[in-house]
Write a protein that binds this DNA or RNA. Sequence first.
DNA 1: GCGCGGCTTGAAAGCGTTTTCACGAGTTAT
DNA 2: ATAACTCGTGAAAACGCTTTCAAGCCGCGC
Lengths: 350, 350
Amino acid sequence: MRARTNGKAGGRPGGMSRGGASIQDVAREAKVSIATVSRVVNQPTLVTEETSSRVRDAIKKLGYVPNAYAQGLSGRGGKVLGIVLPDIFGEFYSELLRGADGEARRLGYHLLVSSDAHDHGHPTRTENLAFGLIDGLALMMTEPNVELWRETLDAALPTVVLDAEVSEPGVDSVSVDNTEGTREATEHLLSTTPPDRCFFVGGPKENFDTKARAEVFCATLATAGRPCTEPQVSCGEYSVDWGRAWGRERQRGAGLKGCAVLAANDEIALGVMQAAQEAGLRVPEDLKIVGFDDTRLATLVRPSLSTVRVPLQDVGAAAVRLLVERVTDSEKPATRMKVGTKLVIRESSR
Amino acid sequence: MRARTNGKAGGRPGGMSRGGASIQDVAREAKVSIATVSRVVNQPTLVTEETSSRVRDAIKKLGYVPNAYAQGLSGRGGKVLGIVLPDIFGEFYSELLRGADGEARRLGYHLLVSSDAHDHGHPTRTENLAFGLIDGLALMMTEPNVELWRETLDAALPTVVLDAEVSEPGVDSVSVDNTEGTREATEHLLSTTPPDRCFFVGGPKENFDTKARAEVFCATLATAGRPCTEPQVSCGEYSVDWGRAWGRERQRGAGLKGCAVLAANDEIALGVMQAAQEAGLRVPEDLKIVGFDDTRLATLVRPSLSTVRVPLQDVGAAAVRLLVERVTDSEKPATRMKVGTKLVIRESSR
DNA sequence: GCGCGGCTTGAAAGCGTTTTCACGAGTTAT
DNA sequence: ATAACTCGTGAAAACGCTTTCAAGCCGCGC
């Protein structure tokens, strides 16, 4: 690399540019030592009001902002949290992220976001690089992935896992308790529809939530005296397209009329609804539909979508909170947090 | 000074925990100097294959990952970009963010996301902290805000502005050229509806895009020989609620039937559509509606929404690309980029 | 009147990298 | 055979900050 602007003089070299004044400059300007400047910023009580005010003036005058790298290096951590999601697209992640972002801000942390996990949560090399940068990592794992585990644990980084239960010591987790909501939803459908006309349309087969929801769905049907048969549970992906495809398929087959569908998320539910409407069926009269997640989508469509509410923002916020707690106190025993789910009845299943 | 964990011995002090081995450890393990280790990592050609291999073994054995803070401090920058949006909620930002994230990954950068701008793009103190951390800042400014400007410019940080045209030297911008799309959309509505029954329902009055779109809308009406009257353009906010409120209001008044609406975004359009449907009107037969942005929402609702396509992902990606270019070469002349817009006709206006 | 504790401040040691500079060992040119 | 290079490596400075330790100064009590 070329000449690295040593002092203040001269234009900035090549690509570098981070402008600002350093703590040195402030110290010089205020005629105190850098230690004092640091104290004014971090522990103001230790400094005389007179000195303090002089330093603050200097800071303001020079527009001084502490260099986060230096802070990070010198031990106080950079106040940065990483969050890795399978994707950052769509209402679902959007909501999760919003919760995380809000909480992070509240706690004075920054969020390094990455949807790197295209390959099922496996951080790339790039991601690794950031591992030195972040104080903790919130990782969403929707499917089992041992390899990733090892890597993360080896990094000895405070970690919280989203949407997956884990048993590693020292790793917190926030996951969704699908039981209650799924059961409620299934019973709700059963109240108007015979068990053999109830269907569960899931996301990816390996997905933790889809699996859990399917299970509870079947269990509830069984309780109602009608163990579910193979074709009553289908898996695909979390998309409108898949829901629509399933709906069309079913319509071509035995028909959708008089059926009830519990979808593994709102998008799938929406797809099914579209397929029904295409076929001239009325929702909810001809077909009951219940979604999952209660994303904004559910209230945006007509008929509005009954759905199982998952407090996504809370999940995001809780993850960040847990993470910060662990970052601040690494001895803290692992917390396994579960957020509940609850049926919200709207028009699509009434 | 107390035992500030010099070597590897002892428990870590206080809240610290960043695990890994340091370059020192690797050097010791491989029996070389830290300089050599650094070279193996960054400029492998400078080192003998033999030494290099020994070092690589050590690195692997110790699970060494360079500390990003140290790297940042010593001048190579941390490969982190900041992106500040008014919010990170909803399809609009979601899409933008996705574009940015993808491009950032491609270029080997990380994204520090913040929706801090609740107060109209004014970064909080927290935000400021990160300014030392990031190599560049992508800032979405939907409304004029001089104060923020000053602060950002003072930070002498490579900056790219989203969705706002600026004239500061050395500041790139990516904005949306609303002209073409808005004109197309307006003409499209005029082709079925008399000018005096055409309405523009905008977002916040001060919002750049809303202003631009309203202007083109009026201009196009004027060209059609019917300068638009005051009540034909209304402003509110970018929300379904506002669209619905406008729709109800209008329905209570002169009625929506036979009208045509151009909304400033898809959400507003959706709101208007809901109001119409509530009133028993059919879309598009009784009321034509065209939205803006072409978010996923537009294809998800029934009838599907005609809308003006704004390549949001491209905007995000372009912002990141420009930013990285500027970070790498601060002398580069400022780029003012404009992405075009284009009418997409779907069911709601046919 | 002298020592002692409290309060404010400064000096300096890291933190983990990158990068420059210098140095010895081969290699090549004279 | 010696001077002039090149190549591979190590020592050390610099990055900007936090924090510990020590020192100076004050007022207090004995």
